[in-house]
């Protein structure tokens, strides 16, 4: 991966963090009522988008901020939807959880885990029928793979030989349950065994690994052979932001917060000399500024003023 791509991925990871910090604040202040499923801990998956071409199509589940930032959805529009602003491109109709943006081929998120698989399969069917040289990548969480529609999708992708990547983010928790308590396999990737589907397992916290896995899968997938990429990730906050995290060890949360994928990637880039400490500061400032401007405009559109930590 060249330095430029690394810096882009790093910048998007930062943007996701700052976006989610603002979103979490809005949630804490009670400005928004919508449940928040933060990407923090799984922002390494942003690197997947860096490997895609312009015509490739992206689907996502509910933990979608990193994916949307990766797709280059407009941050301001994401805030508009979070706030339900009627005068915005999506009209405040989807919220963040069902967000879509045809401009960047982001065909949509879903609040119902696993309901994205079959739609993504249909999109891949169309690509094959229309003879397009592009692929579909469908993100989902580990919990979604417990639904029958995951297996229906794998079967259809396999029997129709479709150009699709099922990108499973395994963060170790399905809702408040440990994944190991509800899924009896170490690697969800092994679910591919019953189908004519290839699978790989990667460290989803490492953007380099994620990028390489997707990049390597693309040529294969373009040959109409579906692939599962299982990315082992973390969930830093509670599965649903604001809900009790009593089901998790405080030490785990603290440790995860101190060592998020973006922190690790920053360290890696600095050690590798791909970026200078000065550039890190500039990028952080730039990302924060971009998010804050979008945030301010969306709040203004909603007629909401926040001073300090209070809604005026």
């Amino acid at each position: 991966m060249d330095n430029q791509t690394m810096i882009q991925i790093y910048y998007k990871m930062l943007t996701t963090h700052f976006f989610e910090q603002r979103a979490a604040m809005l949630s804490e202040l009670g400005v928004i009522n919508s449940p928040l499923y933060l990407s923090c801990g799984s922002e390494g998956v942003i690197a997947a988008m860096a490997a895609l071409a312009e015509d490739d199509v992206i689907f996502s589940g509910h933990r979608n901020a990193a994916i949307m930032v990766g797709c280059e959805c407009e941050i301001e529009d994401m805030f508009h939807e979070l706030l339900g602003n009627a005068h915005s491109p999506l009209g405040g109709r989807s919220g963040l959880g069902m967000y879509s943006d045809s401009e960047v081929n982001f065909y949509g998120s879903t609040l119902i885990p696993s309901s994205q698989f079959s739609v993504a399969v249909g999109c891949a069917m169309a690509k094959k029928l229309q003879g397009e040289e592009s692929i579909v990548i469908c993100f989902a969480g580990d919990g979604a793979t417990c639904d029958g529609m995951f297996y229906e999708a794998l079967n259809m992708a396999s029997v129709y030989e479709l150009p699709i990547i099922f990108f499973i983010e395994n963060n170790g928790y399905a809702g408040k349950m440990k994944t190991s308590g509800v899924i009896d396999t170490e690697n969800i990737a092994s679910r591919a065994n019953g189908f004519d589907v290839t699978a790989v397992v990667v460290n989803g916290s490492d953007p380099m690994e994620v990028f390489q896995a997707v990049d390597a899968a693309i040529d294969y997938v373009l040959d109409n052979r579906p692939v599962i990429i299982e990315a082992k990730t973390n969930v830093v906050y509670a599965s649903r932001y604001g809900e009790s995290s009593e089901y998790r060890d405080d030490k785990d949360i603290e440790a995860a917060l101190k060592n998020t994928p973006v922190d690790k990637f920053e360290k890696y880039m600095l050690e590798k000399g791909a970026i200078t400490p000065g550039e890190v500061s500039v990028l952080k400032e730039k990302a924060q500024e971009k998010v804050d401007e979008a945030y301010d405009r969306a709040l203004y559109a909603a007629g909401i003023e926040i001073k300090g930590s209070e809604v005026v």
Binding site: F117, S118, V119, V121, G122, C123, M125, A126, Q130
Partner: peptide
């Protein structure tokens, strides 16, 4: 369910 879902995906893609 997946027949219906894939039909939506087809329609979203112009079929």
């Amino acid at each position: 369910p997946s027949i219906i879902g894939s039909a939506l995906g087809l329609s979203m893609s112009g079929a």
